[in-house]
Design a protein around this nucleic acid. Structure first.
Lengths: 245, 245
DNA sequence: CGACGTGTTGATCTCTCTCAATTAGAGTGG
DNA sequence: CCACTCTAATTGAGAGAGATCAACACGTCG
């Protein structure tokens, strides 16, 4: 299984990614150490780990999480192809949160000093990293709004819509055929601060209302409008992203 | 009221800030547009505002928030002197969240293109901005863990400790005389996803247990250890963690 | 075939919310 | 100096959304 050169990165062909210059791509290529494949349910970064590096998720889904010492888990966010992983960890020397896969996944692994090198060698890429980090934060902000101030139905509606849009942006048909949905109900519960049982009942309720449908690991939107109204979400459009790859 | 040159910035004298080179300080100085003073309870950035710029909080406290259309408010985080404001907004053109003051406050206002200029003219400063942004995100992550998985007592304990430490780091005596605490109970409630009434009762309970004391806008720690234990927070560093089951 | 993971559903239980009312400043105006 | 108004803190009581407990169904897998 030979590795892909950054200049041929399949991600770049996706319409939701912006162009990079050839020089920038060379910079990234030179910082890339190797590729890494994990199976579904494996850990990429352990909480508290001290030697984590930087990654880019090329294929598959993953999630970031934190746990309390008695085992309660909070999922901080989901990672989809093109997402950057590990900026937070590189700042302190200990990983503030764990990262695990939801599906089989492929990562690009970058040198430990790449964050600085990136800034030093390409202000443009450095700027992009700041952008990606800020964007990541704003996604956490959105989740915090949900968990802090929305009830169970609203939280689930908001999550379904956001994940649907992110996933749909990565496929040709824009979600017409549904999108992959590799989360178990436990993941949904842990990302929304709900119990597994209540998550199940609420998910069921929305499905019975005909708003969506989850089957065989795929999410189908039946009434996005209604879900958006329920969640008090408006506007579409995820901002166009620049890949770090 | 004459403005302060960045090279004389009082903030830099605080022990919790790192040194910058003279050149870097010049870069920052050249991007600074002016200073801005607001009274307590005023709005710095409105949600959805399209022309917000970048700020640095020089004096006073502020907070970031989002609201649902029916008025429910979630405070995303608190801003203390030295904090950077507006990286998220600069990325989209619309402010994803509002910013308001808790006390009278003084801001440095930067040019709208400063984020890019900063990266372009000083990779070192660009790197710092990335760091700041990542750090900000990790604070939101912490809040999300609280709101999603901690009960009321634990959330309040966690908030008190974190705010105490941040504020204490800014003063000479390290908090021995207590630290400023300009939040009303409504702010505490809105930042933790609790109701005002329950916040009051819980705060009262912890105070009666002798863990802390809030009086005349100041927070005094009486038993930080116990609070930290309650919140499942550890020491100063990052928590020693067991890997996911 | 039994063990396990995931989804489902019913029956309680409880933590937190909502409603209501009171107290204590701080500020305002007559 | 005293009513009047506002904001913030406080406390009690009842209500409810969501948690916890318990079973069961179904598919996969060693």
């Amino acid at each position: 299984m030979t590795e892909v050169r950054c200049s041929r990165c399949p991600l770049r062909q996706s319409p939701s990614f912006l162009e990079n210059t050839a020089e920038d791509i060379d910079v990234v290529q030179s910082l890339k150490e190797r590729e890494l494949r994990l199976r579904a349910g494996e850990m990429l970064i352990f909480e508290g780990q001290t030697d984590a590096r930087l990654f880019t998720l090329r294929q598959g889904w993953a999630f970031r999480f934190k746990t309390l010492s008695d085992g309660r888990r909070q999922i901080l966010g989901f990672l989809l192809p093109g997402d950057f992983i590990g900026v937070q960890q590189k700042m302190a020397d200990m990983a503030a949160h764990g990262v695990a896969t939801l599906t089989d996944a492929l990562f690009c692994v970058f040198r430990r000093d790449s964050l600085w090198e990136l800034h030093r060698r390409s202000p443009r890429l450095g700027f992009d990293v700041t952008w990606l980090t800020a964007h990541e934060e704003s996604m956490v902000d959105d989740t915090l709004l949900s968990v802090g101030r929305r009830n169970a139905e609203e939280r689930i509606a908001a999550l379904l819509i956001v994940l649907f849009k992110r996933a749909a942006a990565l496929q040709e048909d824009g979600g017409a055929s549904g999108v992959p949905f590799p989360l178990t109900q436990q993941h949904v519960a842990d990302s929304l601060g709900l119990s597994l049982v209540h998550t199940n009942k609420t998910l069921r309720k929305l499905e019975l209302l005909g708003l969506h449908h989850i089957d065989e690991g795929r999410l189908h939107m039946h009434n996005g409008k209604a879900l958006a109204r329920l969640a008090d979400l408006f506007g579409d459009g995820l901002p166009p992203r620049r890949p770090l790859v």
